[in-house]
Design a protein around this nucleic acid. Sequence first.
DNA 1: TATGAATGAGTGTTCATTCAT
DNA 2: GATGAATGAACACTCATTCAT
Lengths: 199, 199, 199, 199
Amino acid sequence: MGERATATEEKRRLILDAAVRVFARKGYHASRVGDIAEEAGVAHGLLYHYFDSKDEVLEAAFRENWSVLLERIQAVEESGESAREQLRHVAAILLRTWLHQPDVVRVVVREIARSPEVQQRIGELVKPIEAIRRIVERGRATGEFRADLDPALAATIFYGGIDEILTSWVLGQAAGTPDDVAAAERTLMDVVSVGFAGR
Amino acid sequence: MGERATATEEKRRLILDAAVRVFARKGYHASRVGDIAEEAGVAHGLLYHYFDSKDEVLEAAFRENWSVLLERIQAVEESGESAREQLRHVAAILLRTWLHQPDVVRVVVREIARSPEVQQRIGELVKPIEAIRRIVERGRATGEFRADLDPALAATIFYGGIDEILTSWVLGQAAGTPDDVAAAERTLMDVVSVGFAGR
Amino acid sequence: MGERATATEEKRRLILDAAVRVFARKGYHASRVGDIAEEAGVAHGLLYHYFDSKDEVLEAAFRENWSVLLERIQAVEESGESAREQLRHVAAILLRTWLHQPDVVRVVVREIARSPEVQQRIGELVKPIEAIRRIVERGRATGEFRADLDPALAATIFYGGIDEILTSWVLGQAAGTPDDVAAAERTLMDVVSVGFAGR
Amino acid sequence: MGERATATEEKRRLILDAAVRVFARKGYHASRVGDIAEEAGVAHGLLYHYFDSKDEVLEAAFRENWSVLLERIQAVEESGESAREQLRHVAAILLRTWLHQPDVVRVVVREIARSPEVQQRIGELVKPIEAIRRIVERGRATGEFRADLDPALAATIFYGGIDEILTSWVLGQAAGTPDDVAAAERTLMDVVSVGFAGR
DNA sequence: TATGAATGAGTGTTCATTCAT
DNA sequence: GATGAATGAACACTCATTCAT
């Protein structure tokens, strides 16, 4: 029974991964149920054994990839490091995903996470901005960041910077090589280290 | 004939503005051609007098509103102010648009900026980033910004910050009141003033 | 007033000739009112001053070109020549039109005259087959053609031969040079001369 | 699986036959996709399972019925009969189709043969003319037909005669009873027997 | 006469979803 | 589980015709 469940789970994952690839290639709205099924090598009818609807596939594809990132960010939050180090790690998590899972970035980070429709339906899947805000708040409390820094705005700016860098890679405006990733992390931290500290 | 042309231009604009409102309200994909026509108070067939397709309406709506912002940003670039002041003005132009034309921001942020397909077709979207990059380069040349700041990355981060702030307002995660706009401008400049200067 | 009428008539003819060219180029169903107006160099609204509908243009284009051919065929019928000579002249009239008015052949002979819709609406515009049938009947009466030749069938075959030859030119399967036209006339008459005479 | 394929093929044929009936009744352009589906007793969406477009249905309907005739004509060509007998059989094949499949003739004669656009795309329509030309050439080689008979022109005339006879039945200008068919065959052969032999 | 903006009925096609096998 | 045939709601777009100017 455990094996059964595992086999079922594997097939589910097969479809989900196929969905991510297809979304990455064609975009959210242009992807058809048949495209996903074809990419997964199954009949499109089978999709409805594992998911209730096309939208459900989207949501699951998002949720299950996104949650991995969220967990890692949460681990950072609980690490006890300085706020600056925590921000550095958060940036690293998000930016380096581009190297290992570019399709996930293309789809989950850039498309689904920003789609108003999905956004509204998946309330619990808030973006890492809140985590960043909490980090900033703690940094402010410890005096690491200056007292008059608005945590929510700072978090938004920080995340926006990361997101826009990822976008430049997704759109091919910048190469997104490992060196680029390293440079992006460095520049971002250079800016906010002093920018958030205020001097 | 001049009057004729003007009347025609007005009707075109009427449809375009209606489209922006509808897209802002329902999103591009959920907006039917008939919705736009109804909002504009014309028959849906008339839309095809002025535009080749629904897609073209979105592009035109973007281009014709975006170009106004681009011109204002260009004026800032030519103002001869310090790089920091120029960045402040660019941020103000983009962020304050939310106060005067929230629907335009809604459409640009949600429908254009999030859709890789559209973005590829409309190179114009990256124009502000390029302007910012030039400003940063000049600031670096004058010693206003530190020498080891990567202008392209800095520009990407700066623009990303603005974009994410607008997104938070569009998605209703933050209110976007005039005070919020002022606070956003201030915080953003606080961060990059020292962050870009490096001390 | 006479001049007025003439000017009016000229404009009408202008549109009609444009219609023939457009039909020849794009085919009956693919031709739009706007195409005809553009070809004629007038606004498409003007078309409705001269004709009641698009169909009316088609009908008029057909009628006014077709009637010329019918009159010439009628003249042949009244010429008092032998049936064989009359057939030769009918064939010449139809086949040589290709040399002078290929568009008329393309449209009127091949498309409109065979279109069931138009055919039914324009009852009085019967094809020359009936004229040919009468010629055959007279040839039979004079003993020129054999007595057991069915005139209606003979006429149909004769006209069909002409029509198919024109088709081969229209479709470019044969060149349709003046020499081709001459050869076609000769071969057709060679066949029916003895074929209709029966020996 | 063989049964499955057969069932699928049957459904496809069901739709195709329905299409032929509808096209024959209303003409291609006046036939709506929904009409065909209704005639076939299926949902209109199913049509697109079996065909790419309405156009493709017409083409398939033509091709799959036409190919039967082409095969039979080819069999005649290989029969070793005299050229005259072969021509008689070709005429019989084409003309008698009217008795068994009047709708097919209606569609082929009216919609396919009259539409230059379709005809260009479907080279097959000229196949019978080419077969007839080869028969004439052989008849000329054996001395059955006179040496100065142009085979291409003769074939065109012969086929044109058949086509025009079918047209007269399709358009209701002649009844097209079995007797009419027999008379048509007889008259056509009477004419070309001596017409092609030249004496 | 002449223009071309405006109308709106009409239709081919797509595609998520269902369900018999 | 797995397949893919079958369904039908939904929608962008066309184009003949009208009419104010």
